[in-house]
């Protein structure tokens, strides 16, 4: 059985959501916020994000450079 994730459980409580909502725009929906946080905490590291951007830079490098 999968272990409960305390952070996700906390987010689901009203108090958790209330505290979290303080930092978001009033127009952001609760589902959007949960998706955003859960997609980015514990699943994607900062290095992963930086590497994803680096790959974009590498894609945009000219053929000459890639073939050095």
């Amino acid at each position: 059985m999968q272990e409960p994730d305390p952070f996700s459980e906390w987010l689901k409580t009203n108090e958790g959501i209330r505290q979290t909502m303080l930092f978001f725009e009033p127009t952001d929906s609760q589902d959007d916020i949960l998706d955003l946080i859960q997609a980015n905490i514990g699943m994607i590291t900062l290095d992963d994000q930086i590497n994803a951007f680096r790959l974009t830079l590498e894609d945009l490098a000219s053929g000459d450079i890639k073939n050095e």
Partner: peptide, 20 residues
């Protein structure tokens, strides 16, 4: 806010591509 930080980060690649 975390949302603003993540939105800022997510804009890097499209802004870069558009500029290039």
């Amino acid at each position: 806010p975390a949302t603003r930080y993540l939105q800022a980060k997510s804009m890097r690649a499209p802004v870069l591509k558009e500029f290039c």
